[in-house]
Amino acid sequence: MVCTSAGLTSTRRDANGTPTTTFTPVAAIAASAPESASVLADDYDTWCESSGTCHRIIDASRYIGETKGNATYGDSSGVIGSYDVIIRNSLQGRRGRWTVSLIWDLGPSLTFSDSWVNCYEVIDNWPDADCGDHALYPGRISSTNWRWNSPTLYGNLLVNPAAYYAAFNTDFTPGGYSLRTAPALETARFKCYGSTADPCKF
């Protein structure tokens, strides 16, 4: 069982041992930006700590947005641990620029694998289109090495006039437990309307 700000993923087996996975989503909320962007490097572990998914716009020009999700995981005996994920998108013209931070909160050490930031173009009444997949290699976070910050990931040129978003996908293994898959954490939508000379904004 993995509960993130996106929702609850649980797997149960029937009498024949056949697994069935269910996902129950949770609605995101908006959070106001801090008064000064200078505090951002230090507030990730306190901002949106007791809510589900939170989104905030950092600058008045609407080029920088952040999303935070709080993940709690466990089994039939109860909660094992928790961690935070923060995705920051500093738009550059018609391209996304993403960084991801992972923060250990509680429980055993966590080793992350198969981690990606995936870009999507919103398509009405149809599955959203892929606009770039960017691999990450977070490694491990724990009580002694509690935070990991990614390098900047540079997105593809977004040529279509549309809304877009990113999603962080990952598997993780708590020390002493089996591998788990976290539900995707989706960012707020940003809009890239007009021609390719017009910048994207949240």
Rank of each mutant, 00 (worst) to 15 (best):
W47R: 12
C48K: 03
E49A: 15
S50C: 07
T53F: 02
T53I: 13
T53S: 11
C54T: 09
C54K: 08
C54P: 06
R56M: 13
I57R: 07
I57M: 07
D59T: 14
A60M: 05
I64P: 14
G65R: 00
G65Q: 12
E66G: 08
K68I: 00
G69H: 03
N70E: 06
T72Y: 09
T72M: 04
G74M: 01
D75W: 13
S76H: 11
V79H: 07
G81T: 15
G81L: 13
D84L: 08
V85D: 00
S90K: 07
Q92L: 09
Q92S: 13
W98A: 00
T99P: 01
V100A: 03
V100S: 03
L102G: 11
L102T: 01
L106T: 05
G107E: 07
G107T: 06
P108L: 10
D114R: 14
W116S: 12
W116Y: 08
C119L: 12
E121V: 00
I123Y: 01
I123F: 04
I123G: 03
N125E: 10
P127T: 02
H134F: 06
Y137S: 15
Y137I: 03
S143I: 11
T144P: 05
W146R: 14
R147P: 01
W148F: 15
S150D: 00
T152Y: 03
T152D: 05
N156P: 02
L157N: 15
L158D: 03
L158N: 04
V159L: 10
A163P: 01
T173I: 11
G175I: 10
G176L: 12
G176C: 12
S178P: 10
L179Y: 09
L179S: 15
T181W: 04
P183R: 11
E186T: 11
A188W: 02
A188I: 08
F190Y: 14
